[in-house]
């Protein structure tokens, strides 16, 4: 499987603020790759860097084997891009927008564009300024997909789409991946991403938390819940065998996200006299996302849970 995108130790600073911190990953071709992250995590900066809009402070990026900064035109010919706020000419009609864009791409653009807007049930003669937000997003998507690009980069692509179109669109993304084309999307719609994404990367405050195939991620990471009878007693030694990715403690109850949890460890923990209600479940993507982006320790809150967790931490140290 060849690489469609290679991001290697990328750092990007705006003034004194570092937006991307040593980000590295590869996107194989023929997959749907989802980039997740909270607002301001650096997703759009990373996408713009991939398209050559940003010069990097360090590291390098290759898209379709091309350098985005030095070969921006070649990349634009191969990559379809829809930004989070597509700036279409409001005075153009839907048809005129396609006609105008077709001038920059090879033959066949108009035919595919026509099919797309028919699928989206967009009126050909309507001016862009008269369209709703969702309809504008459909036009932008149609324009980006009309030249059948090798790589489709979508920044919040389903924002504003109605559920029916959203489902249809996501299925088309799967079809594209099946046909060997690559889709790189950033989204907050985690459930939808989970349905279509082959690979997932989570960006948190400019740092890449994890990047892996979704199925592998889900199979290697588990949620472990248990409660302690006596908080003064030490934690069982079996927990040293797993990698704790995230821990949430409320009183004597623990909610851990761990990697490397085996049925044997779970069985051993269940037999520990100090633990009760030991449960192990496979997390969904949303739980994984929250696990990687929320603070490791529970935050202080008004109901005293913070104090309890502090006590529990102290006891753990003891």
């Amino acid at each position: 499987m060849s690489e469609m995108i290679r991001v290697n130790n990328v750092c990007k600073r705006f003034g004194k603020r570092t937006v991307l911190k040593n980000v590295s990953f590869q996107v194989p071709s023929g997959v749907v790759f989802a980039l997740l992250g909270e607002n301001g995590a650096g997703k759009s900066t990373l996408i713009k860097s991939m398209l050559g809009y940003n010069k990097l402070d360090s590291g390098n990026i290759a898209v379709c084997g091309l350098d985005p900064v030095n070969q921006p035109l070649e990349i634009r010919r191969k990559v379809g891009y829809v930004s989070d706020a597509p700036g279409l000419y409001e005075w153009m009609t839907v048809a005129q927008a396609g006609w105008y864009a077709s001038g920059f791409y090879p033959q066949g653009f108009l035919k595919t564009y026509g099919e797309r807007i028919s699928d989206f049930q967009l009126p050909h003669d309507a001016k862009i300024r008269d369209l709703s937000k969702g309809m504008r997003a459909k036009v932008a998507l149609s324009l980006a997909m009309a030249f059948d690009p090798e790589l489709l980069i979508l920044d919040e692509p389903t924002s504003g789409l109605d559920p029916l179109v959203r489902r249809s669109f996501l299925e088309s993304m799967i079809d594209r991946a099946a046909a060997g084309q690559t889709v790189f999307l950033s989204s907050h719609q985690i459930q939808e991403v989970e349905r279509v994404a082959d690979w997932v990367a989570i960006l948190h405050q400019g740092s890449l938390q994890i990047v892996a195939p979704l199925e592998e991620l889900k199979s290697s990471i588990s949620i472990l819940d248990f409660s302690q009878r006596d908080p003064l007693l030490a934690m069982p030694a079996e927990l040293d065998q797993v990698e704790v990715l995230h821990k949430l403690q409320v009183g004597r109850s623990f909610h851990l996200m761990v990697r490397g949890l085996t049925p044997e460890i779970v069985s051993s923990l269940s037999q520990n006299a100090n633990l009760f209600e030991v449960k192990s479940i496979r997390p969904n993507l949303e739980e994984l996302y929250l696990g990687f982006t929320q603070p490791f320790e529970p935050r202080l809150s008004d109901d005293g849970l913070g104090q309890l967790s502090k006590n529990a931490k102290n006891s753990e140290v003891a």
Binding site: L51, R76, S83, A85, G87, L88
Partner: peptide
């Protein structure tokens, strides 16, 4: 109006 973004994303 933001159309500069789209124009500059085209292969021109």
């Amino acid at each position: 109006s933001g159309t500069w973004a789209w124009s500059s994303s085209l292969p021109v």
